[in-house]
Amino acid sequence: MSTTTLLLLLALVGGLTYLYRYAMIGLFASRSLPAWLHALCRHIAPASFAALTASALFVAGGEVVFAFDTPRPWAALVAVLVAWRTRNVLATIGAGMAALYLLKLLFPT
């Protein structure tokens, strides 16, 4: 993506985000939020993060690749376990990166 296109994209996302933030305190200040929007918003973050994580781990060049002979899926598994046990964001990122480095050290390619 060219720098100009990216700048346009960021301006669009930024403008849209600002409109969201201003929506109920400015644009539609006298109205209440529709129930469907409330319900929709609840699942957007889990759905987005799950799709992006699955894609980051198992999609390469438009194809599904279960590369279990590389460190990343296993490091991600360690991160999932730590996240589940500790519910701590920094511990999860730290453990995942540590597992990645350890695996790379133990099994150099």
Partner: peptide, 25 residues
Amino acid sequence: PLTFIALLTLLLRERAGQAAALVAA
């Protein structure tokens, strides 16, 4: 992606959210 995993774990408290995440993945 590790950050997404961490945030995802915090968000997955109810059944519907878990279903949304699983199907999206």
